[in-house]
Nucleic acid binder design. Structure first.
Lengths: 131, 131
DNA sequence: CAGGATCCTATTGGATACTG
DNA sequence: CAGTATCCAATAGGATCCTG
């Protein structure tokens, strides 16, 4: 890698968290990343089918942003019909702990969501156990 | 806990990830959660000072949503001047792996962000190492 | 101290139709 | 197949002022 600033340019502790969040925020990014982590390489429509009810516009957007942020690699095959494959870059693969943790948490708590999936957000919990 | 549905109500794999993301999405939520994880219990203005350049409206919003989602506990002391303390609930503490992973990734890659912090998003990377 | 109430803008997200 | 291009609605986010 060409030039790497070693300066942490004084940053509050939460700043690191904020930095990571800023890259994976978005309704679908983590889902996209997760599928690429699981399956290695996927084409555009393969991703679309897996994520279901993502629009192609959103998928395109999220993929572009992830690419710009250096988290995924976009391989275009010069042929017709077109073929484009997406995969994680090294830096993208370094998100693995985050993605695994998200998946694990989701698996453990998915019951708490309405039967409509995530649409209806979680319930109003009465978990009044404090600190 | 009163009633727990054991039904996973058929859900795509990415759905679990989506569920987790839906709770922690938002520009500040993970930062709030991270500080509460680190410091245990914090008052409103303590959080505000730590996060710096979050507005009080946003902080209030995020805290309310986190509370509704059962991730944080809000303890109000009936006194004047008012005193309100926030802390993680059990379910909130279960986010620890996610928060730690975010922090770790941020620490490792914070250099990639502009000197203005997160404001300028990351650079356009030339990391053309593929699958 | 810990917010509530308003107002406003920017960004996100979605529907639909079209294309090399 | 893998997108663009438009248009539009919803939400997130922010600035400012007020209050028990």
């Amino acid at each position: 890698m060409a030039k790497t600033l070693h300066s942490r340019f004084d940053c509050t502790p939460g700043c690191s968290v904020e930095a990571a969040v800023s890259l994976i925020s978005g309704k679908w990014k983590c889902v996209v990343l997760w599928y690429l982590l699981e399956e290695g390489t996927l084409r555009f429509n393969e991703l679309r089918r897996r994520i279901e009810n993502i629009t192609q516009r959103m998928l395109t957007n999220q993929l572009r942003e992830l690419e710009i942020d250096g988290l995924i690699h976009r391989e275009v095959y010069a042929q017709v019909p077109p073929k484009v494959e997406y995969s994680l870059t090294q830096r993208g693969r370094e998100l693995t702990p985050i993605l695994m943790a998200l998946k694990a948490w989701g698996d453990a708590h998915i019951d708490l969501f309405g039967k409509d999936g995530i649409a209806g957000k979680p319930y109003a919990v009465a978990a009044d156990e404090g600190a």
